[in-house]
Design a protein around this nucleic acid. Structure first.
Lengths: 158, 158
DNA sequence: TATTGTTATACTCTATAACTATA
DNA sequence: TATAGTTATAGAGTATAACAATA
């Protein structure tokens, strides 16, 4: 990806533009930053590693065992129809199980397997290493500030 | 979108989890924040309004007239094949024109039309209003800090 | 040989709508 | 009537590979 700051032969006559309008927009900067982080995430997790959303789903199943699919979809902010493929993948890999809930036969509670728990802990270490490396030009305080500010945007969730 | 902090009937026994692992990850928070901002962007621009990437492309053509498609793709961080549909849309709406460049007949320089320039200025006002409204719980200083921190992540571009 | 714009194609992510089995 | 999980389907957005025209 090329920086907007680079000079293009045909735009030299526009060199007086200090910073393009786009750079002032939070949304544009969020998108560009997210593209970098998720690409590095995929690189770090490898060819057969978890996609970001699969990692997120596994994380929540491990930490909220017996969560329902609808509940998980709500937590992730996606439709429950979109969760089926994710749960299929995790179950196919033997990392979680769909289990029946006594008292409500509509529900499939999701529980991590032993393998799922260890896989998650391993993957979490890889993800932490990826973020530590990629964001090494941010101080601990800056990272905390970034989380706080993103949290303010996320306060609009629901 | 439901907050992770909300209690689910089946996860009440996990209430001792202070904050899910996911919340510590910059990537996850970036994604969630971006989803909110881009959804509000689309709502603000309306049914027939610009999609974010189309707005971005128009912005750059207005500010860098005579930019080539390859140059624009580089600036936006996407493949030049992906730019064709965007330029088609903008040209179809009469907002930009593909023009021949004397001296290199491979190149299509992109220039905004008069309508394109005024449409851009109008859209930019709508986008600014959308961000001002959506991010009104962030101070001017916090917004500047956020841009700075996102810029540090974006320093990995290229 | 390399580059520009283009097409064809495929893949990921996500949403909507409708179905079924339960409640 | 409403809800949980599922399926079918479609639409963005993006990437890769190949091609013709031109450099």
């Amino acid at each position: 990806m090329a920086s907007l700051r680079k000079t293009d032969r045909r735009t030299e006559d526009e060199a007086h533009i200090e910073a393009p309008d786009l750079e002032e927009f939070i949304g544009y900067n969020l998108k560009r930053a997210y593209v970098i982080v998720q690409a590095d995430f995929r690189r770090a997790l490898g060819e057969d590693g978890f996609a970001p959303r699969v990692f997120s789903a596994l994380s929540l199943v491990v930490q909220y065992p017996n969560v329902t699919q609808s509940g998980l979809a709500r937590m992730l902010g996606i439709e429950r129809s979109g969760l089926v493929a994710i749960v299929d993948e995790l179950e196919g890999r033997g990392l979680i199980k769909r289990t029946n809930v006594p008292g409500d036969r509509r529900v499939q509670a999701l529980v991590p397997t032993a393998k799922g728990k260890t896989s998650y802990v391993e993957a979490r270490a890889v993800v932490r290493a990826h973020e530590d490396r990629l964001l090494s030009n941010l101080s601990t305080e800056e990272k905390a500030t970034l989380l706080t500010l993103l949290g303010k945007i996320r306060s609009h969730e629901d």
